[in-house]
Simulated assay, not measured.
Amino acid sequence: MTEDQSQTRAGFAAIIGAPNAGKSTLVNRLAGSKVSIVTQKVQTTRFPVRGIAMHGDAQIVLVDTPGIFNPRRRLDRAMVASAWGGADDADVVVHLVDAASHIASETKDGTAADRRGAEDTETIIKALTAAGKQVILALNKIDGMRRDTLLALAQKLDATGAYSEVFMISAATGDGVDDLKARLAAAMPEGPWMYPEDQAADVPMRVLAAEITREKVYLRVHEELPYSAAVETTAFDDRADGSARIEQTIYVERDSQRPIVLGKGGQTLKWIGQKAREDLTEILGRPVHLFLTVKVDPKWQDSRALYAQFGLDYDA
C-alpha cells in the first residue's frame, strides 16, 4: 500500500452491453493491459473478467460481462445470468452501446447483426427501467460519425430514463476514455485498494490462459467455426528453470470441425499455439511451453467442469 488508506478509494465498475459493443476493448483500454479477449466474433467473453484500472487515488476493478442478449441454450442462459450478476454487484454500471451499429440498424444499409444489436440494447434498457436503475451510457465507436447524428442518438436513448449521464468514446482509439475513467474513479467508495497498484487483472491464470488460446482459435478460423469451441487448461506447472508448462484441450462439437482447427499438416493448430504462447510469454514475463490437443465432444456445452472453470452457473 503506497498511500494512506483513508485517502484511497476502491470499488467495482461493471461494463454491460449487447454482444460486440466493444466491452472487452474498453476494459483493456482502461486497464492498460490485455485482460479480456477481443475478436471479431460476438459472444467471446463468457465470464466476468476483472481488469484493474488506477486513476489518482482510486482503484477501479472492472467487470467485463458477457454480452446481454436473448438466451436460447444453457450456455447462453449462464452467460446472461453472469452479466446481470456482475452488474448487480457493482458500485457503478456502464452501458456500452455501439453507436455506429445502432444508427445503421435504422437504415436500409443496416445488417442483420446491426438489428440484433439494437434489439439487445432495447432488451437491456427495458430491464434497467423495470428495475428502476440509472446507469452511465457510453456511446462507443464514434470514429468518423457526425456530431449531430451522435447527439440525436444520445438524446433518444437518454429519454428512456435509464441513464444518469452520457459519454461519447472510442475504446479502440482511446478518445473520451480518460473522461469516462475519471468519472468511474469518482464513483468508487472510500476504502483501501483491493489489489497491488501494479496488478492489471484478477483472473485465475489457468482461465486467462484458456481464454487467450480461445481468442486465437476464433481469430484463425472465425469463418469456418461458429461458436462451437471451448478451451480448457488441463495442466499449468512451474518448471525449475522458471518457465511455465501449460497443457490445454480445445473442444469442438463435431468430427468435421476437428480438421478445421488442426489445418493442413497441423499448420492451423501450430499458428494458434504460437500466437497464444507469444501472448502468454508477455503476460507471464517468462518462457512458456504450450501443448495443445483437439478433442471432439458433442456435449461440451453441458460440462459442469467447464462452467465451473469460468465461474458460470450451470443451472442458470
Rank of each mutant, 00 (worst) to 15 (best):
A21G: 04
R74V: 14
E106S: 12
L128G: 07
D109V: 14
G263L: 11
A185Y: 02
Q5N: 11
L75Q: 07
D313G: 12
L26F: 09
P71R: 07
T160Y: 10
T129C: 03
F291Y: 13
K126Q: 10
N20W: 14
A10S: 15
V217Q: 00
A99P: 00
I15S: 09
P204F: 12
R206Y: 01
A230Q: 13
I283V: 09
L139Y: 03
G311S: 08
A201P: 07
H55N: 13
L96D: 01
T293R: 07
I15E: 03
I52G: 01
P19V: 05
H289A: 09
P204G: 08
S164F: 13
M205D: 14
D297A: 12
S164D: 13
G17D: 08
S6A: 09
A162V: 04
R116E: 15
Q248L: 04
A14Q: 10
Q59H: 11
L292V: 12
E278F: 03
A130Y: 06
G273M: 11
R29D: 00
Q7R: 15
I272D: 03
R304Q: 12
V296F: 10
V207Y: 08
A31C: 06
Q274P: 11
I103E: 04
A13E: 00
E232W: 14
I15D: 05
A112E: 14
R77G: 02
D143T: 08
D143C: 08
D238H: 13
T123K: 13
R304I: 11
E211W: 07
D114C: 04
T111H: 06
G17W: 00
L26Q: 02
I103Y: 02
F236V: 00
R46C: 05
L219P: 02
K156R: 14
V80H: 06
G110A: 06
E165H: 12
V221P: 08
R72M: 11
V135T: 12
N28P: 07
S33T: 14
T160D: 06
S243I: 00
D98Y: 00
G273A: 02
T249P: 00
T149W: 03
A100S: 13
Y195L: 04
S303M: 10
V231I: 05
F47S: 15
R116C: 05
I246Q: 05
Q267N: 15
V80Q: 04
Q274K: 15
T121V: 08
T121C: 08
T281C: 13
D315F: 02
G285V: 00
Y195G: 13
H102I: 03
I37F: 02
